[in-house]
Every structure is written in C-alpha cells, then in structure tokens.
Amino acid sequence: MTAKLQLSGVKKKLRGRQVLDGVDLDVAAGRSLVIIGGSGQGKSVTLKCALGLMKPDAGQVLVDGADVTRMPQEIRARVMRKFGMLFQGGALFDSLSVWENIAFRLLYADNVKRADARERAIEAMRRVRLAPDFADVRPVELSGGMQKRAGLARAIIARPEILFFDEPTTGLDPITADAINDLIVEMVKELGCAAISITHDMASARKISDEIAMLHNGKIVWRGSTAALDASGNAMVAQFVAGRADGPIQAVV
C-alpha cells in the first residue's frame, strides 16, 4: 500500500541533544498509526517535523511521495492543506467564538463566506457531538472534553487527507477520554484519511490504532500491528505497556 505520509531518516538536534536520530515511519490512507514512548523521547518533535512546524536537520518528509522539506514555501503551504491537527491542549483561539475557531481555515484561508462557514462549523460540531448551542461562546467557557471536541471539529472541517493527534486524551476523565477515542476512530473511518497520533495513554493507543510504533532515544525501536503489541518480544515495549519502573528504560524523575 502506498504511503500517504512517510518519514525517512529524519534527524533533529535541539540545544545540542540529538532528539531524533533517523526516524523512519509511514502511514497509508485509511490507516491509523500511534507512536508511543516516554516523555522527552522525541514524539512531539516527530509530529512537528511531519507537520512542517520544524525543519529536520536531515532526512525526508514525504507527502504523497513529494518531499515537503525541500519545497518552496508556497508549494509546501498548498501541501499542508491536506493536514488536520488536534493539539494536546486544544489550542483554540481565545479571542474567537467556538464556531469561528472551527471555521477558522474556511474563513481566513479558503475565503468562504461567513454564513456558509458558520453553517459548516455547526455541521462539524454536530459530527463531534458538540451541541450547536455552544457555537457563539468563547473557548474558555467550554470544559476540557468540549474543547477537544471543538479542536477535533476544527481539524476535520476541511476534510483533511492526513490527521494528526497530539495526546488526544490527556487531562480527560476516563469516560470522556473513551468518547474522544470513539470519535477519532469514527472520523478517521468516515474521512478515509491517514492518521498519526502520539500518546502515553495505552488504552487510547489500543483503541484508535491499526499499528503502533515505539520511539526511544530518537529511534523507532519497534513497530507492529496493535494486535501484536502484547507479544512484541521487545523488552522496552513490554515495560512501557505494563507501566513498570524496572526494565531497560530508566525512569526520569
């Protein structure tokens, strides 16, 4: 199957530390890949390199086979229109109402008329089961779960081809977290897009993924199907999945 998004030999050094040391990953359309790994192992940097928010020192980021790291800014901006992203804290704009947040791209990048953009934002709110009554309130008036739903609505409104999720369930109670996981699975299936997520939450990882990859010391140390996770045969994966302090990975406290 052709990769929708592929990272090949991606390296990145930050403040003298080699955060990514040759990361190789790929995800095909309609598939969901989750990257797991401890704090500070390079998961967020991997996502930022894939999104074009950070330029890798070496390696390639291929979207539909084209290397975005070497594209001129204008062409890269066009490729980035294929992306949708749900940020860890929601990253909703405080100064705009919920519907304006959700329709931001339609309003300011695609020049859709306000009335049409509002209609599509409310439709997206319904799809993520966020009551349209909240369309005109500010994000600060929403609960954590509602902010995630609004962030998800914003990520899917322009029907992206590649969806990114950064810790989608962090800070949520287990029931709300499970509801968000269900929504992610539903949206990825409905849109038929490629999905790439990073998380510490193993319940979430199992639920939203087709495949799981483990990142440690800036390298992918294991990758396999979600079903094969418990029989990975990799001591680091086994320790991380079990959540044990003793093992090959030293806890940083």
Binding site: K48, M80, R81, A91
Partner: peptide
C-alpha cells in the same frame, strides 16, 4: 507570547494561515 506557549501559533500555521499576516 501566550499564543506561542499554548500552541495557538502552531495551530494557526496548520490551518494554512501565516501568523505574520494574520
């Protein structure tokens, strides 16, 4: 600055809008 530390600037970039222009 608050938009930077809460990833709102990154979010704007992923929404195909240049923070310098907006």
């Amino acid at each position: 600055g608050t938009m930077r530390v809460t990833e709102q600037l990154d979010a704007m970039t992923t929404l195909s809008t240049d923070p310098f222009k907006f």
